[in-house]
Nucleic acid binder design. Structure first.
Lengths: 209, 209
DNA sequence: CGGCTACTATGACCGCTGTCATAGCCGAGG
DNA sequence: CCTCGGCTATGACAGCGGTCATAGTAGCCG
C-alpha cells in the first residue's frame, strides 16, 4: 500500500479509508483517524468542515479512483491482455493481501454502502460514483481487449459484483477460496466475449432484449 | 416477509436482522431492536445474556437459515428447475423488494461481515456459517438439477458472490440494473454445467487442478 | 398463604462519539 | 513592533451506546 505521504489532509483521507475497510464506517472514530494519520485532531475540523460525512465521502471517492488506477496498472503490466487475465489480476490483489497480511480489511466502498446507503445520502452517492469509476475503468479495459462495446458494461458489472461478493465470503471464511473460485469460473466466460479475428459471434448474447 | 410472530425472543432476533440489514451492525441499537420488536427492553438481557454479540450472531444465523429455506422454496416452485431459473428466482427476490419497497436494506450477513469480521470473532464465524448454510442449499439444488457434484460447490459460490456484489451495487446506485445484469450474464453459464442426457462434457472444466 | 421461577420494567453508570468553542503557535507582510 | 491567516491544540458538551443493578409482576406449585 505505497502512498505518497503528501499532506496531512491526504493522510487523513487515506487513513479513514483504511479504517473503514477494517471496521466499517460507524465504528471508525474521527479521533482514531487523526491518530492513525499522525495528524493533529484539530486539523479534522479545519480540513473537513463538513464533518465525518465529508471525510467518509472523500475516502470513498479516493478508493474508487484507487481501484480504477489499479485496473489501468494491471492492464499495463499484462503482456498479452485478456479479460480473464485482468480479472485474475484484480482477484490476486486480494488473495495476495489476505495471504500476506490476514483478513483484516474488505472493500471500503462496500463498507460505506452497507453502513450508509440508507442513512447518509451523500455517502451513498459517493459509493455509487466510486463503483461507476471502477466499472468504467474495467469496461474501457475490456473494450481495448476486443470485447464488443455493447457487452463491456455488463461484463464489468459482473466482474465487480463477483469480486465484491467473493471478498465478503473470503473475509467471513478467512479463506481465499471464494476468490480463487470466482476467478477460475469466470475466466473462460469473460474470454469468450472477446471478438475473434475471424469474426465469429463471440460466445454469449450480444445484447438481448 | 411473512413471519410467524411467535415469541418475543424470535421477534427480537428477526427485528435485529431487519435493522442490521438497513443500518449495519454498529448503527443498530439494542433499544431500537426492542422497540421494533414490540418487546420489553428488559427482555434483552433476559433472553440474550451474551449481550449484543449474541443477538447479532443469532440474527445472522437466522438469516442464513432463511436464505437456505428460500432456495428450497424456489426449487419447489419452479416447474422445470434449471440453474439459471434458480438464480433468476434468487435475484428476483431482491429486485422485487427493491422495486416495491425501495433500496433500504441489503443482506444482513454481508452487513455483519463488513462490520464485525475483524472485531468480533464469534460474529465472523456466524457469518461464515450462514454463508455455508446458504451455499450448501444452493449446491444441493444444483445437484438435483444434474450438475456434476464436483462443480456444484464452485457454482454455488459463484452465484452467491455475484448476488451479494450485485446487491451492493444496486443499493449504491438505487437501481436494480446490476442485479438483472448478473442474472442475465450468469444464466447461460450456469445452465451449461448441467450434465446432458447424451453424456456430453457439460461445458466448463470438471475440476481443474 | 409462602416460595419459587420466568419475565418485565426502569433507572443509573460509564465510555465513547462527533462537534463546537476557544486559545495558541508561527511565518508573512507591512 | 503589530496584525493577519493558516494551522494546531485542548477542553467541554450533549447525546447515545451497551450493560449492570434492582425492583416489580405474573403464574405455577405446594
Amino acid at each position: 500500500m505505497a502512498k505518497a505521504e503528501r499532506g496531512p489532509r491526504e493522510r487523513m483521507v487515506f487513513s479513514a479509508a483504511q479504517l473503514i475497510r477494517r471496521d466499517g464506517v460507524a465504528s471508525t472514530g474521527m479521533r482514531e483517524v487523526a491518530v492513525t494519520a499522525a495528524a493533529p485532531r484539530g486539523s479534522l475540523q479545519h480540513y473537513f468542515p463538513g464533518g465525518k460525512t465529508q471525510l467518509v465521502d472523500e475516502a470513498v471517492g479516493w478508493a474508487g479512483r484507487y481501484a480504477a488506477d489499479r485496473v489501468a496498472r494491471f492492464l499495463a503490466s499484462l503482456p498479452e491482455p485478456t479479460p480473464s487475465g485482468l480479472f485474475a489480476a484484480m482477484v490476486r490483489q486480494w488473495t495476495d493481501e489476505y495471504e500476506a497480511a490476514g483478513f483484516a480489511g474488505g472493500c471500503p466502498v462496500a463498507a460505506a454502502t452497507v453502513d450508509c446507503a440508507e442513512s447518509v445520502p451523500s455517502t451513498r452517492k459517493a459509493a455509487s460514483a466510486a463503483f461507476a469509476t471502477w466499472t468504467g475503468a474495467v469496461a474501457r479495459a475490456l473494450t481495448g481487449m476486443g470485447v464488443p462495446e455493447e457487452r463491456t458494461g455488463a461484463l464489468a458489472t459482473l466482474m465487480i459484483s463477483s469480486l465484491e461478493g467473493a471478498i465478503l465470503l473470503a473475509r467471513a471464511d478467512q479463506d481465499v477460496r471464494a476468490l480463487t473460485t470466482v476467478a477460475r469460473e469466470l475466466g473462460p466466460v469473460l474470454d469468450a466475449a472477446v471478438r475473434k479475428p475471424d469474426g465469429s459471434p463471440a460466445g454469449g448474447h450480444t445484447g438481448a432484449g
